[in-house]
Design a protein around this nucleic acid. Structure first.
Lengths: 229, 229
DNA sequence: GTTTTCCATGATAAAATTATAAAAAAGGCT
DNA sequence: AGCCTTTTTTATAATTTTATCATGGAAAAC
């Protein structure tokens, strides 16, 4: 298994000097580094490389970082890579817009190599940890592999659509804990999106159809829970 | 001034801008707000302030939110404050680990002030209702698990409907204290709702059916109490 | 000892909540 | 464009929870 340093990092900035400075420092730590001079190139490379992390300059001519981020997240619907913005203090107004576009973090200029690297490590640590959920018990065994978007239930492998997968993953992450609808909505759907009252039910039903009824239990008036035993 | 707004809230985020944005909005509502720039500081302030609520950014350099949460909950064994994570949608892989670390809820970015405040209120309301009750004595042992919405009575686990659960939780929160009908109504049912005279009796009866008669005692003309021993 | 008040109980009605099916809408893919 | 999949909405059924009511009995007041 690749270690934490085996990740691919994509840098997008219109300043060649900054690109060089960053790539030198990051590459030194053992990461695979690729660079793009503008947003378009950044998008293209993202599709080709599927990097673990994208460092994106906010201020760029033509297509700025926020647009680029939006295209990657919303248009291409690529959620795997972590996207962090490079921004100078004066640009902090961009932060709110940035998060809405799907940014994970901000790194403000001037950039200190030490701090940058520790941020990169912390951002990537999450990725490494998140290889899946495994639940084992007497009656049911469930493996959730979020890299392959695949679950294995007592030997059978099932591919679930995104929403169903995320919903199951959430519930199974804490068997026994009751998640109420509000929590489910804000975590699986996000605070931005507004969906109707019965949407969760339908996804629960589809999960039950595919997994069997014994996994997810309804606590009426409260929420849903993944059965412990 | 000791209304529901008298609570202390601790914000932990490495981005000064976000800290300012959040603290401004929360402070405006009358809460006491403190801030920390990193996990270590967050832990330290938690020990000193014992805040009611901690809003913790997931992504932070060096020590991230999940580690911070873990230290507070597992190492220091501090269970009082409610811990909610601030996270962006794209970080959903982190959310799984978060609940295991002892998080109570997630608030996903982008954060809209209105929604944030209503979430804060609902989280604090939970605190007032006690986070979990354990009663141990010679005759009876009772565990009330709010997270799992489940009670355990001398080994047996029982799932109670919402109202019954809340009624039991109230009575058991202060064994020996006699709650009169007015108090019970205003806490379990809320001041707005008006229900008939005999409603409480019926719920008490159902609880006694499920738990046994020895737990809840009637004080005629006054109210009900949870038996101490 | 009788009256009065208050609560317990079971049956029943009402309300709230969720399940289900089917269709529409929104994306994806070739 | 056309076809397939996923997601959301809508409408209705089923279920569970909650509230009400009527009755009888026990305790308290007289």
């Amino acid at each position: 298994m690749e270690n934490s340093k085996g990740h691919t990092i994509l840098l997008v900035d219109d300043e060649p000097d900054i690109l060089e400075f960053l790539s030198y420092n990051i590459r030194k730590e053992g990461y695979k580094v690729f660079t793009a001079n503008n947003g378009e190139e950044g998008v293209k490379l993202t599709q080709q490389l599927s990097p673990s992390l994208i460092l994106l300059d906010v201020m760029m001519p033509k297509m700025d970082g926020i647009e680029t981020c939006q295209i990657i997240r919303k248009d291409l619907n690529i959620t795997q890579p972590i996207i962090a913005f490079l921004t100078s203090r004066a640009e902090d107004y961009a932060q709110i817009a940035g998060f809405e576009a799907g940014a994970d973090d901000y790194i403000s200029k001037p950039i200190r190599p030490r701090l940058l690297l520790s941020k990169i490590e912390s951002l990537l640590r999450r990725l490494d940890k998140s290889h899946g959920v495994v639940i084992d018990s007497d009656i049911n065994s469930l493996k959730i592999d979020r890299e392959k978007f695949l679950i294995e239930i007592s030997g059978k492998q099932i591919i679930l659509p995104k929403k169903e997968f995320e919903l199951l993953e959430l519930l199974a992450s804490r068997p026994g804990k009751v998640f109420n609808r509000e929590q489910i909505l804000s975590i699986v759907w996000g605070n931005e999106t507004i969906v109707g009252e019965r949407t969760i039910d339908v996804h629960i039903r589809k999960l039950r159809e595919k997994l069997g009824d014994e996994y997810i239990r309804t606590i009426k008036g409260v929420g849903y829970t993944f059965n412990e035993k």
